[in-house]
Amino acid sequence: MNEAVIPSLTMVRRIKAAPAAVFEAWIRPEILARWWGPHHTMVHTAEIDARVGGNFRISLVEDSGARHTVSGTYAEIVPEQRLVFSWAWEATAELVSRVTVTFRPVPEGTEVTLVHDRFANEATATRHRRGWTESFERLAASFETAA
């Protein structure tokens, strides 16, 4: 009997900033709003209760005006080291996936590893890869311009 393979994605990016600063960029709404989302979007609202059992809710607006809201619950928070949270888009709230982000100090700053798993299908994983890739580009750029 074959087990179904549940689609996932893993991304690694080095950010030129200390782990504490990069971690804060993920849990402080005013910082997250500067970088979160693909290039053609901006954060409209970000609500974050960064504690185990706490929730987040982020609304994005596309250049076209379309709005998308994602939310989830924090399952694990280890300051400057690890975040684990559920992930569900408001339009497809029944499709809950999981995001794990780890922060590792390296000589040039922080190595961030993101694992987003439990996708409903490969197409969903592919769309999220694009969004996370562009979000990481924006995150890295936010620290380069702040330096």
Rank of each mutant, 00 (worst) to 15 (best):
E134A: 13
S64L: 07
I6R: 10
W132I: 04
R13F: 01
F143Y: 12
P7T: 04
V115D: 11
S71V: 02
M42C: 09
S86R: 01
T102K: 01
V78M: 04
F85D: 02
R118Y: 13
E137Y: 08
L60S: 11
D49E: 14
A91Q: 11
M1V: 09
V70W: 13
E47K: 04
H39V: 07
T73G: 01
R129W: 04
R129F: 10
A88N: 05
V43S: 06
L83Y: 01
G72Y: 05
W36I: 02
V115P: 05
G65C: 12
F136Q: 04
A93F: 08
W132R: 07
S86G: 02
T110A: 08
A125T: 02
R82C: 01
F103L: 08
R34Y: 08
V99K: 00
H39I: 08
R118W: 03
H128K: 01
V106T: 09
R130N: 07
T145I: 14
E108L: 10
A120G: 04
A146T: 15
E144N: 13
I48W: 00
T100F: 01
P79N: 07
E80C: 03
T73R: 01
S64Q: 08
A123D: 15
K16H: 14
L114F: 07
R118V: 05
E108C: 09
R129I: 05
W89Y: 07
V78H: 03
T124D: 15
E108Y: 04
V99G: 03
H40I: 05
P107A: 06
A75P: 02
S86A: 03
G65W: 09
M11R: 11
V61T: 10
P7A: 02
V99I: 11
H40P: 00
E3V: 03
P29A: 12
A120V: 12
F56R: 05
M1T: 06
E94M: 05
S97F: 02
W132P: 06
G131T: 05
V52K: 04
H40V: 08
Y74D: 09
V70H: 10
R127E: 15
I31F: 10
W89E: 08
